[in-house]
């Protein structure tokens, strides 16, 4: 912002055209900058303050320190939710990336009807998490879904009840999440694979490398930045997980698949514990920061290193 403002302020009598030309970038950016400033930074600050207050049903501004955080961490359900978040994120991100990469590599072999396959795999992304969750919950429910279907084929002892098992319900959400997001990962990976210079691949062929070695040593390292970008996007999907879990298991069975976002909603709007809800929201922010801050630092570092080496 400053760099945009300063030249026009410093210039001694440029024509109104020049002034306008200089002001245009700022004018165009101003609304989104203002929105970002207010909705991100001001409200984050507000939430942070509320999380240190004694707000209950309505926000109050009496500062009471870290007590809401202590209350939050004393709660079993929160601990399960935070624990779930890490398990879910790990399996979901790794799973979606692995499936996405595999699909991308298969499609990259110039398969027939490539556009059709690409659309099919990308399609789940167009479906909202609530719809996905609802449909998959029917599939998972023993009385209506896959179990019923397989039993109707004659395997009458077949059991498939992920969502009703408190130890497995989380993985039902993981699988559904992977189904939904692997197409997105595939699209990005495929774009990456297609951007690789064909000459490099030819050079590797002449160098005597097999297909596996060409992918492992030449192609995939070239698109490493895409891995990181996909990972960061998927991670922030994972950390925000709310509607998928609500629609699929509603946090159950019991509290087995509670996620922090669900818990925040609960505390804030169901139980009138605004301070604790804000504290929980700040913890989600912390989790996001753990992912995003190193990523942005890495981006800056890489840019600087490239700048230095030309």
């Amino acid at each position: 912002m400053q760099s945009v403002l300063e030249p026009s302020a410093a210039a001694a009598g440029p024509s109104w055209r020049e002034r306008l030309a200089q002001a245009v970038p700022f004018l165009v950016l101003a609304p989104s900058l203002a929105a970002t400033l207010i909705y991100v930074f001001v409200f984050t600050g507000w939430t942070l303050y509320i999380s240190l207050s004694n707000s209950s049903l309505l926000p109050t501004y009496k500062f009471i320190g870290l007590k809401p955080y202590a209350d939050l961490w004393a709660n079993t359900r929160w601990n399960i939710a935070y624990h779930n978040l890490f398990i879910f994120s790990a399996f979901y991100v790794v799973g979606a990336m692995a499936v996405g990469l595999l699909l991308a590599i298969v499609i990259d072999q110039r398969v027939r009807g490539e556009a059709i396959w690409r659309t099919i795999f990308l399609y789940p992304l167009a479906v909202s998490f609530v719809v996905t969750g609802t449909v998959w919950s029917w599939l998972y429910t023993p009385d209506t879904g896959i179990q019923l279907f397989v039993r109707s084929l004659g395997w009458s002892n077949f059991t498939f009840a992920l969502t009703t098992d408190r130890n497995l319900a989380l993985y039902a959400i993981v699988i559904t999440g992977i189904w939904q997001s692997s197409g997105f990962a595939m699209a990005l990976f495929l774009a990456g694979l297609r951007s690789v210079d064909q000459d490099i691949i030819k050079a590797a062929q002449i160098d005597g490398a097999g297909v596996f070695r060409i992918y492992a040593r030449v192609i995939l390292p070239t698109i490493a930045p895409i891995f990181l970008a996909v990972m960061v996007v998927l991670l922030q999907f994972a950390i925000k997980t709310f509607d998928l879990a609500i629609a699929l298991t509603n946090g159950g069975p019991g509290i087995a698949t509670t996620f922090p976002a669900i818990y925040v909603y609960d505390l804030m709007f169901q139980r009138g514990q605004i301070a604790q809800g804000a504290a929980a929201a700040i913890m989600i922010l912390a989790a996001l920061a753990v992912v995003l801050v190193p990523y942005s630092l890495w981006l800056v570092w890489r840019k600087r290193r490239e700048g230095k080496n030309g």
């Binding site: 000459d199 050079a203 590797a204 030449v218 390292p221 070239t222």
Partner: peptide, 9 residues
């Protein structure tokens, strides 16, 4: 190769 096709990584 014309583009040299060195492995960039």
């Amino acid at each position: 190769f014309q583009s040299y096709a060195l492995y960039p990584t």
